Measured scan of single mutants.
Amino acid sequence: IRKQWHEDITQDLRNHLVHKLVQAIFPTPDPAALKDRRMENLVAYARKVEGDMYESANNRAEYYHLLAEKIYKIQKELEEKRRT
């Protein structure tokens, strides 16, 4: 379902936000690492998460909020795993 606010969101912005999700899960300073085949699954997962939020959000603010919440949860989980 195409929503009115979707018209304001460019593909570049969506790609940028997918990249932010990927960085939250696997922070790497090396952009070449993103071309690694093992990263493809991670990028696919991040695209799916972003797509789900894009579809479920009712406006741009909610879209950003859902993504920020997801990134926060991912970082929290990773922190907890590092501690144990």
Rank of each mutant, 00 (worst) to 15 (best):
I1L: 06
I1M: 13
R2A: 03
R2W: 05
K3I: 01
K3L: 02
K3P: 05
Q4A: 14
Q4T: 14
Q4N: 15
W5L: 08
W5P: 04
W5T: 06
H6N: 00
H6D: 01
H6K: 13
H6I: 11
H6G: 05
E7M: 05
E7G: 09
E7D: 09
D8S: 07
I9E: 01
I9F: 08
I9D: 06
I9T: 01
I9N: 01
T10P: 11
T10V: 03
T10F: 02
Q11H: 00
Q11I: 03
D12Q: 06
D12S: 07
D12L: 06
D12G: 09
R14S: 02
N15K: 03
H16E: 15
H16A: 13
H16D: 13
L17A: 15
V18Q: 02
V18M: 01
V18E: 00
H19G: 09
H19C: 07
H19L: 08
K20V: 05
K20L: 04
K20N: 03
K20H: 01
L21A: 01
V22R: 01
V22L: 08
Q23W: 06
Q23N: 13
Q23T: 08
A24M: 11
A24L: 03
I25W: 13
I25F: 12
F26T: 15
P27A: 11
P27C: 09
P27L: 07
P27F: 03
T28C: 15
T28A: 07
D30Y: 10
D30W: 07
D30T: 08
D30M: 08
P31S: 12
A32D: 14
A32F: 05
A32G: 11
A32W: 08
A33P: 11
L34D: 06
L34I: 15
L34Y: 11
L34E: 14
K35Y: 08
K35F: 08
K35P: 15
D36P: 10
D36E: 12
R37Y: 12
R37S: 13
R37I: 07
R38F: 07
E40P: 07
E40A: 06
E40R: 07
N41S: 14
N41A: 08
N41Q: 10
L42Y: 13
L42P: 08
A44M: 07
Y45M: 12
Y45S: 02
Y45D: 11
Y45W: 15
A46C: 09
A46V: 02
R47A: 01
K48V: 04
K48N: 08
K48S: 07
E50Y: 00
E50M: 01
E50G: 00
E50L: 03
G51H: 13
G51Y: 08
G51N: 13
D52R: 06
D52W: 02
M53P: 02
Y54F: 13
Y54G: 04
Y54E: 07
Y54V: 03
E55V: 08
S56V: 12
S56M: 05
S56T: 12
A57V: 15
N58K: 11
N58P: 02
N58I: 07
N59F: 02
N59L: 02
R60Y: 08
R60A: 15
A61W: 05
E62N: 01
Y63Q: 01
Y63F: 06
Y63T: 01
Y63V: 00
Y63D: 02
Y64P: 02
Y64T: 10
H65L: 05
H65N: 10
H65E: 14
H65I: 01
L66D: 01
L66Q: 05
L67N: 01
L67H: 10
A68I: 00
A68W: 10
A68E: 15
A68G: 14
A68F: 07
E69F: 00
E69G: 07
E69P: 01
E69W: 01
K70S: 05
I71C: 08
I71V: 09
I71Q: 05
I71A: 14
Y72L: 13
Y72K: 15
K73H: 12
I74L: 10
I74M: 07
I74H: 14
Q75S: 09
Q75F: 00
Q75T: 11
Q75R: 13
K76Y: 11
E77I: 07
E77L: 06
L78M: 12
L78R: 15
L78I: 11
E79S: 10
E79R: 10
E80F: 07
E80T: 13
K81L: 06
K81Y: 02
R82I: 11
R82P: 11
R82Y: 00
R82W: 05
R82C: 11
R83Q: 13
R83C: 13
